[in-house]
Each structure stands twice: as C-alpha cells, then as structure tokens.
Design a binder for these strands. Sequence first.
DNA 1: TTGAAAGCGTTACCAC
DNA 2: GTGGTAACGCTTTCAA
Lengths: 336, 336
Amino acid sequence: MATTIRDVAHRAGVSIATVSRALRDATSVTPETRARVTQAAADLEYVPSQLGRQLAQGRHAANGIVFPDLSGPYYAEVVLGYESVAAQLDRSVLILSTHGRRDADTLVTGLAARCDGLVVLGPTVDDEVVHRLNRRGTPIVLVARTPLVDVDSVNAENNASGTLLGEHLVAAGARTILFVGDPEATADVAERFAAISAAAERDGASVTVEPVSDFSEEAGVHAARQALARRRTTKSLPDAFACANDELALGLMLGLRDAGLRVPEDAIVSGWDDVMAARYAGLTTVRQPMRDLGVHAAQLLDQLINRTRETPVHEVLPTELIVRQSTTPTAGGTTR
Amino acid sequence: MATTIRDVAHRAGVSIATVSRALRDATSVTPETRARVTQAAADLEYVPSQLGRQLAQGRHAANGIVFPDLSGPYYAEVVLGYESVAAQLDRSVLILSTHGRRDADTLVTGLAARCDGLVVLGPTVDDEVVHRLNRRGTPIVLVARTPLVDVDSVNAENNASGTLLGEHLVAAGARTILFVGDPEATADVAERFAAISAAAERDGASVTVEPVSDFSEEAGVHAARQALARRRTTKSLPDAFACANDELALGLMLGLRDAGLRVPEDAIVSGWDDVMAARYAGLTTVRQPMRDLGVHAAQLLDQLINRTRETPVHEVLPTELIVRQSTTPTAGGTTR
DNA sequence: TTGAAAGCGTTACCAC
DNA sequence: GTGGTAACGCTTTCAA
C-alpha cells in the first residue's frame, strides 16, 4: 500500500526504471539485478499500484457490462460467460445494473469512463447513448438487443426456433393461440412473435396478442387471470399460450392451475429461454446459448479494443426448441 | 477521450486548476467563470479521465466482489443486492468469478489492487489470503463463509431453521433420514447438518450422511442412484432426504422419479436456499435473504472504507422454513 | 477567486 | 543493461 516502486528501487540499490523492467519480465535485465529487485519487492511486500500503471499505460485493463437485472437466470449467465473470457484476457469486469433506474444514461456514461470498452445487454439505455459513446470511440458490443448498423452485436436466433415452435403448437392441437408479451417491447420479442404467429397461422391456427410488457412471473399470473376473466364474456379460452419468455409462462401456468385448469390437458403453454425452473415445471421452451452470448461478446469486444478489426460484426447464435409436457398432452410424467 | 482538462482550460481561458474546481466544487468559483468552463467542457464533450482523478485522489471509487460462480441463482442475487447499494454510494463494482480455478489467490490479490475494498463470497479463496489482505489494510467483508474473528462477515441463520426443518421432517413421517451433502465442505453446511440432525434425532429419527461435495443437480441425481443401488443390498431406502442445497435436492427428486419412486409418497425431500425452481418443483426448503446478504455486505464495506467503524462486525440474517409438497404427503396439488 | 506548481505511482523514451 | 526523466490527467496546497 504505502510501499511504492521507489522504496523497492532504494532497497535494491537500483533505479525505479530498472525495478519496473525487472518486475515485468522485460528481457533487458541482468539475472542478478532481477534477483535483487525481486527480493527487495518481496521483502517490502510491494504490490504495484494499478492506478499508476493504468495512467501510464493509458488503459484501464477493464471491461464494462451493462444489464437490466441479474434476478432472472438469463443475464447472470451472460455475465458469467463474459467474465470468464475477460479474466482469461487478463481484464477486470465492471458491472452496472440499470434495473429500471431512469438515470441509466448517466451511469453508463460514467461506466464508459472507467473501462476500455463495454457490452450493453438488453433494454438498458437508449440507442442515442450507444451512438454517442460509439462516436466518441468507446468500443461497444450490443447483446440481446436490436442491432445498430455500425455497432457490433451478438444475438440469439429467433426465427427458425420460432417457426418450429409455432408448428409444434399447432401439431399439439392448438387452434386459438394467445401470444403473451408485447412484440413492441424489444426486437427479440417482435421476432419471436412474428415467427411463431406466421408458422401457426400458416398451419391454420389463429393468433391474438396480450401485450404484456413486464416479463415477470407475477405478470404471467396476471395474464392468466385476465384470460380467465375474459372467458366469462367470450365463453372461450385460448387453447394455447405462447409466452415471450419462461418467467411469464411459469407464472401463467401457476395462474391457470390455481383456477383448476390443467396444463397441457385444458391448455398448452410455451415459454422462451429455458431457465432452470422450466425443466422442473415441464415447460416447452426455446433454449438460448446464454453463456455463449457473453463469451462471443467478450471476444468481439477484445478485437475492438485491440483494433484487430475495423468493420462491425453482427453475430446470431443458434437456439433450440425444447419440448416438454406443457405442450404434449400424451406424454408420460417424466421430466427431462 | 483525447480532450483533457488542459483543452478545456485553454478554451475557457482559465487555468486547469480552475477547470477542476468549476466542474465539481460548487464553491470558490465565480458564476461567470463556471459558466465559461461548463460551456467549454460541453463544446469539447469533455469527460474527465477517471484514471487521472483516481490517481490524484488515491482511491479507486470501486469495490470488488469475489464469488465461485453465478450459475446458481444464489450468488447472482447476492451480487445484485451488493451492486445496488454500491451504485447508490457512487462506487463501481468489479466482479471476479473463481469458478474452481486454482490460481484464485493470485486473481483475488490482483482484484484487491484495483479497488478500495472487497467482498469475498463463499468458498473462493483460502483464509490465509483473506488474512493477508486484511493485514495489509484492504477492507474486506466475508459473506456466506466461515467468519474470521477480525474480519467483517455477513451470514444467513442456519441453526433455527435447521432445527425447524429437522422437526418438520420427523413430523412428516421421517424415521431414517439421509443428509445429502458434505458437512465438512463449508461451515454453512456443517451448521445445517448439525441443526437438522440434532432436532431429528431428538425426535426419534436416525440420520446418516452422504458426503457429496459438489452441490449440483447432477450430483443430486447421482446421490439418488447411489441410494437406490444400496437398497438392493440393504433392502431399505431412507424415507427422507435432507439436502444441503436446492440444486442437490432437485436433482435428487429427478433421480428418484426416474426410478419410479414418488415424492413425497415414497420418500420426502428437502433442500435449502429456495431458488426459483424450488417453487415449481414443490420443494420444501429454507429461504435465505440472498439479496439482503449483498446489501448488508455493501454497507459494512462502506463503513470500513470510510473508516466509520473500527471493530469487526458479524451479522447473521434470519431465514425461513418454506414447506411445500415434497414433504407433505397429504397436501393437494397446488404449488405455492 | 484564480494560477502556478507539486505531487499521485507507473511506464517508456533516450542517453550513457 | 541501467539510470535519469519526461509524460499520463487529475487534485490540491500555496501564493498572489
């Protein structure tokens, strides 16, 4: 703490320049002097000041990552993948959760000033902020977020799996499908909705929308109640619920069951994400490579920081339809 | 980026000292000069270099947090609570996942050099490292980890809930209980085991241990298989499984069901943590205030950093027994 | 109120 | 190979 490079230099009887070199394995130092320096450093328990080092090198050796929340399993996984790569590249990771705060823009700008580049995850800050930072030269990678032409991005595939899911729902007997989630909320949801409904309608089903924008379990429970309430007037209930994400779907199933309805006998339900709970709830869903999203983002960001690449890249990682009991009336009781 | 305090000073026609003051100190600057400086800064899109600032102030304005992993929902929640407080205190958060790496010590030491203080979460680094950092003056708070006398700590209560759980298991019909998890793995598990088994034995049940040390779903599945295999020789199966955490319990339930056994009819199962999936699996468990652990840790750490407090504090936050179907043979099918 | 200048702890360039 | 010494960008005395 209190011991600086000067103390070490003094004790080893050399200059601070030599200490600096000796300690960082710069080739140009005699074995003997290096030994003396190393010894002195050890004696004094010297730990180089990262602040001094960073200022001199003009780099933070740290990456930032901005996400809405860590509550769901979704973003946590992405962050984890991101961190693992960053650590390998010997860079620290600064996190910032915007969690609905309104001053997210300021916070992100602040974060940008503390790292060499950052990843922006999901619906956190306005495109405008991203553009401003990008224009200023801050390396940025967007993840799970509507791509911008001149900014790197990594997203999960929605179209193919959405189509598969739409077909699967109809094959499972769906005639009237309610899509739970607001397609206008994010581009991801918009794509999912478009793919699911196109496929389902092509196969003869009808699709309506419940534009829920809060993607939580509670919102799912609420959506179930609303559908049930409507049944009293309409005299009919959708026979399939395609939810924008798993938490919504899980809440919805809870709501249906509380009302005495059985899934999948009375209505089938699907989610999106394949969170851990989906497996135990037997929920049909689409698995996203969450960890890989983080890994790829970290790698792209590193190229940006090191100026290894100039032209923007837009990656789309594959997803996978996972069929479970919530859409398979005939299946046995085993969870997979 | 390229624009420094000097550029602003030049454009505003003042000295860098004045710029520095005008941009933060409300006092000691004429309204007019401040206006000029602010204007110049805005024109140039000046953003102060945090590196320069930090070096001059001798502080990082950042906190670190070390955790084993973010996969489970457990640590993610803690991190989130921690981040929320840190952000309020205007401090960045640096994360480090040790994830089984063997060079964790080095990484943590490196992290410590990049922040003003850190939180160490769970089984990540040796006590020796913690002691060394602490001795060097680095503010440290331990979370979900065996407390050390002279280091702050925040933990969740194990004793009271463990006792309640032990009593509950016996009341639910348990005679032969298998504790799944290695009590020697962490102090938390040791305490849980001690409390559960003491209460259960007091009420007339017998308790044995399956010392699993990997607390994952897979390990749970494996534990179930082992118990079933033993049944062939022993001709008997425990009638209750008390698991060290939820993931173990969830995997175990999966394993039992795959073998055609019913929970809770053929065997009752309990976990610990109350992760999201526990609710959907109907798992009886103990809820921990995960987010609060992070919140309290951040607050304690702040006191340490600001030298508001000298003597170490050891907090223990309350937990709650959550009873669900996995231990209630009579209950209906509703998940709560 | 404002400016000059001395740090803060490194790294890196340039002589020797 | 090693030492002296400018940066790096800011904050903070100390004078004026």
